[in-house]
Design a protein around this nucleic acid. Structure first.
Length: 969
RNA sequence: GCCGACGUAGCCCAAUUGGCAGAGGCACGGCCUUUAGGUGGCCGUCAGUGUGGGUUCGAGUCCCACCGUCGGCACCA
């Protein structure tokens, strides 16, 4: 909104020369930023290696690794919503440097990705050129905020020196397999050795020795953690590429670009993340993350315990997955997904046409349409039957699109009395609904029906614990199973599983929703695969010493894109066209000498670069490895001294909640592979995750429902207490949303620097609320923090001469006590990332000092030190004015944070409230250490209390020493 | 539908985790400064915690139900 009553103004002739105006603030800020850079103040030493300085490491103190989720360098620059988390991590890092920590804190750029490529396609400018320019802009904006990054450690994912190691890690994953016995990844060579020695046999029982070399290759390739597979993938013609499950929105569109996505079988690279499903769930328990994020990850992985049950049919055993094997006696029909491979064989001649028609319409539906649970059930009977192993009953087999091929086995046993969907289906098609549990009386009462096992008047399925009925009677020749009378499902499940396993009819199993990670993209602006194919089409990794495989130069950046709805188009990668690059002569070092190969023409998804960047921050310039093991252990090793199950990783990772499943799941997966292969000592990448809130801003829509530029909207007089707004004289309506270009409500930090300076902006963003809460931006509120800094400045500096006005006289007792209480609270709040309350205390202290005749040095110095993490520039300037810079190497950065004197935290006397029946009726001043008896006596003698009692006798007197007295009548 | 977070002043937010509802900022009003506007200074105004119950000497805080807002998942067998 326009700020017509702008509270700042350019200095006029009568503005004192040394007032803390925005001009002076900017001068101070830019000056200190130059000095910090020149002196390398924020450079952090490693124990060893190119950035190693063991002596300085010891001097700095305990290690602390703080990291922000790195940004994509957008072309439009930052708005004030972006740096909220960055300011938070900077304040924390600066605070920790002052309390004896060696802090690793830097910022890189996640610079591969679609926007730069799309811009390149439009303009013909190489994405590297625009991306480099964007990075330069962002670096400038971040530097201007005063962030204390070790800039030597900044990396960019598009830098060949960086993606060389992204490719190297891909090779590691490709050359590894998951040993389910050892529950870890191992090098593929060890698998080959086990096959060779006979220690391991192939899954299908073929003798390894009898296999041809190419058959052996096939077996090996099937074990790799990165593998090529022909599988249903998400094809997005509008983007001209495939995308991962995680990148498809609930309504079946791409999260980038919002184009339709189609399921298609295609040959693509996959990562075997499913091998890690259990560890990715179980290790969540060792992480200091919010429950919200943990539950999102658990949800996404979707582990469910159940059983597989085999039903005999004419086409062979139909295997279903169920979480309720105990309800097997209640199965009255089976349902296969229309795409189930058995359908053709099972279909009765008379049903063929009907089935074919049904399948055609089902296949035409997109995933999201199938997942709409409000749709009416549809389906077709196949004419075939399957045998229920538990009782030998013949169950009709149907096909229906409410059973999804992508989950479980694509087939279910239908238990209509206990499953809402099956119940609905049975009702619609007149299938039997046998009851197998006795619902409680309340259930019948709730539904207004007479209790009974005749399901014809049941309005719905009964889901829950209840005693089993009609759940016995197994086929001749089997051990009898009788669940009747048992009243908890856990026991019923266990008994049924045991029966199934004993009779080869099924087994307990675990099913996951998580699918393997689709890893290839048909784009230009990404990391090329370190893979070449031989004349048989077998993939091979390029030897490590030939990395990086650099992106080839071209001026054709676009994949072939298609009409967004052209489902049956096929991807064509931009790299496919570069024949000179695709065809190579190489010696792979496998003893076969130089041969001809074709390069892989896919690129990696944008998530690849962010899967491991924390390691490169540690050793950004190391040539020999992606990170030195000793440095990795120092910065990220498990802190078993803190917690026995500490998994290691970054001490504080701050970012938005939108990465809850994508980035955080992929990064954890890569980290665990690197751990299994012995490359790193930490088990998890991010020990503590903190989700910062978003800055929201008012957005305005005109009558056509189109957003208008928020900065040009004017607030009008209220009507019925509701504020009214107009844009160019036209009424507009207000709503709240994430700040950004699309809602036309972005506020640039540059405007804030100009109007107030970076310190005020930093302070405002930290003061407006807790770091993890989303809150609305309000430009007119910023002035409050600006006034605070002005008062602070005036308390120490003469506005006309610029001289320091701090006096060396001791502070009075009250001021001194307030100072120490402030120190105590500020330390606690800083530790807990509650900067808003720390700032409130500092303002309170400053307001108190403002009333004094002069600022005593014993208050001024600790106050400047406490403010240094929050407003580093003005703090440095005041520290210099106090004459202290000379004896602290020119910067306040590593000066010890003030420590409160515990003796000054307790007052001699305190005022305690006296309550009658919990209501405050009076107050009295007593010695801080007054005994319970004294307090009780004092309270009962208080005249207001005597009056309130009015001669009555108190029933009881509750005394909380140091707090209050409550007289109960 | 399921899961998770959150509801305190006109607005953004505190409250030692069961012990005096108000720390801080914005807005608003008055006075001072100023030729004036702005800036700056001083003083001041407003609520009883979304609703209804419960536990307790005492509830913003704990428990139950409901309402509302936001986020995630969703025919997941």
């Amino acid at each position: 909104m326009s700020d017509e009553n702008s509270t700042t103004s350019s200095p006029t002739a009568d503005t004192p020369a040394y007032r803390y105006t925005s001009e002076l603030a900017q001068e101070i800020e830019v000056g200190w930023q130059d000095r910090w850079d020149a002196a390398g103040v924020f450079e952090t030493p490693n124990p060893v290696g190119p950035l190693g300085d063991a002596e300085l490491v010891a001097e700095r103190g305990e290690k602390l690794f703080v990291q922000d989720m790195f940004p994509y360098p957008s072309g439009v620059g930052l708005h004030v919503g972006h740096p909220l988390g960055y300011i938070g991590t900077d304040v924390f890092s600066r605070y920790k440097r002052m309390t004896g920590h060696n802090v690793l804190y830097t910022m890189g750029f996640d610079a591969f990705g679609l926007p730069a490529e799309q811009y390149a396609v439009q303009t013909g400018t190489h994405p590297a050129v625009t991306t480099d320019a964007n990075i330069a802009t962002m670096r400038r904006q971040l530097r201007r905020l005063g962030l204390s990054h070790d800039t030597r450690r900044s990396i960019s994912t598009i830098d060949p020196d960086y993606y060389r190691w992204t490719q190297w890690i891909f090779s590691q994953i490709f050359n590894a397999w998951y040993d389910t016995d050892a529950e870890k990844a191992r090098p593929i060579d060890e698998l080959i050795a086990e096959f060779d020695s006979g220690a391991r046999t192939t899954h299908d029982g073929h003798d390894w020795a009898d296999l041809s070399p190419s058959e052996r290759d096939e077996v090996i390739d099937d074990h790799r953690l990165a593998y090529v597979s022909e599988a249903p993938v998400n094809w997005c013609p509008g983007l001209g590429t495939v995308v991962a499950n995680e990148e498809v929105t609930a309504d079946g569109r791409s999260d980038r670009g919002n184009f339709p996505v189609f399921k298609r079988n295609m040959r693509q690279w996959m990562m075997r993340i499913t091998a890690y499903a259990d560890r990715l769930i179980d290790d969540l328990d060792t992480l200091d993350w919010t429950d919200a994020i943990k539950s999102m990850q658990r949800n996404w992985i979707g582990r469910s315990h159940g059983a597989k049950v085999h039903f005999a049919s004419a086409a062979g055993p139909i295997t279903v997955f169920t979480t309720r094997p105990d309800t097997l006696f209640g199965a009255s029909f089976m349902v296969l997904s229309p795409e189930h491979p058995y359908v053709d064989e099972l279909a009765d001649e008379s049903k063929r046409d009907e089935i074919a028609a049904y399948r055609e319409q089902a296949v035409g539906k997109k995933d999201f349409e199938l997942q709409d649970d409000t749709r009416e059930k549809t389906g077709v009977f196949t004419g075939a039957y399957a045998t229920n192993p538990i009782n030998g009953e013949q169950l009709p087999i149907w096909i229906a699109d409410y059973v999804l091929m992508g989950y479980g086995t694509g087939a279910i046993m239908a238990v209509p009395c206990g499953d809402e969907r099956d119940f609905e289906f049975a009702r619609k098609f007149g299938l039997p609904i046998p009851a197998i549990q006795q619902p409680p009386a309340e259930w019948f009462a709730d539904h207004g029906i007479e209790p009974g096992l005749d399901t014809t008047n049941w309005p719905t399925a009964y889901v829950g614990d209840a005693a089993y009925v009609q759940s016995a009677g197994t086929p001749a020749g089997t051990e009898p199973l009788d669940l009747n009378g048992i009243d908890n499902t856990a026991e019923g499940i266990a008994m049924t599983n045991a029966w199934l396993e004993a009779h080869d009819a099924g087994e307990a199993t675990i099913n996951y929703k998580l699918r393997d990670w689709l890893f290839s993209r048909q784009r230009y602006w990404g990391e090329p695969f370190p893979i070449v194919y031989d004349e048989d089409g077998r993939p091979h990794t390029v030897p490590d010493e030939l990395l990086p495989i650099e992106l080839p130069e071209t001026d054709q950046f676009s994949p072939r894109t298609f009409d967004a709805d052209d489902e049956f188009s096929n991807p064509e990668s931009p790299l496919d066209r570069l024949e000179d690059w695709v065809n190579v002569e190489l010696d792979l070092g496998d003893g076969r000498g130089v041969r001809s190969y074709r390069r892989d023409t896919n690129v990696m998804p944008q998530w690849a670069g962010s899967c491991w960047y924390q390691f490169r921050y540690i050793d950004p310039t190391l040539e020999e490895r992606f990170v030195d093991p000793e440095n990795e252990r120092y910065w990220m090793g498990p802190r078993t001294d803190i917690r026995p199950d500490h998994p290691g990783g970054i001490d504080l990772y701050v970012g938005g909640v939108e990465h809850a499943v994508l980035h955080l799941l992929y990064a954890r997966f890569w980290h665990k592979v690197l751990y299994d292969l012995g490359h790193v000592s930490s088990i998890e990448p991010y020990a503590r995750l903190y989700n910062q809130g978003y800055i929201q801003a008012a957005a305005f829509k005109d009558e056509r429902e189109i957003y208008v530029e928020a900065s040009e909207v004017v607030e009008e007089a209220e009507i019925d207490g509701e504020p009214q707004f107009s844009f160019h004289e036209q009424p507009v309506t207000r709503e709240w949303g994430k700040m950004g270009k699309s809602l036309k409500n972005a506020v640039s930090p540059d405007e804030m620097y100009e109007q107030y300076g970076a310190d005020t902006l930093r302070l405002y963003e930290m003061a407006m609320g807790p770091l993890d809460a989303s809150r609305p931006w309000s430009t007119r509120d910023v002035v409050g923090q600006y006034r605070f800094l002005q008062r602070l400045w005036r308390n120490m500096v003469d506005e006309t001469t610029g001289d320091c006005t701090v006096v060396d006289e001791p502070a009075d007792d009250e001021t001194r006590r307030l100072l120490h209480k402030t120190i105590d609270v500020v330390r606690t709040e800083m530790e807990a990332l509650r900067f808003n309350t720390a700032i409130a205390k500092l303002i309170e202290l400053n307001n108190h000092v403002t009333k004094l005749d002069a600022m005593p040095r014993e208050v001024a110095e600790p106050m400047v030190l406490m403010l240094a993490p929050l407003v580093p520039h003005v703090a440095e300037e005041l520290w210099a004015k106090l004459g202290r810079s000379v004896d602290t190497d020119g910067s306040i950065t590593y000066v010890e944070f003030p420590v409160a004197d515990p003796d000054l935290l307790v007052d001699d006397t305190i005022e305690v409230p006296i309550q009658v029946n919990g209501k405050v009726r009076s107050r009295m001043t007593v010695a801080a250490d007054a005994s319970e008896d004294d307090l009780e006596a004092g309270a009962l003698a208080d005249e207001k209390i005597v009056a309130a009692l009015d001669g009555g006798t108190p029933k009881k007197v509750i005394v909380v020493p140091g707090r209050m007295v409550n007289v109960v009548v």
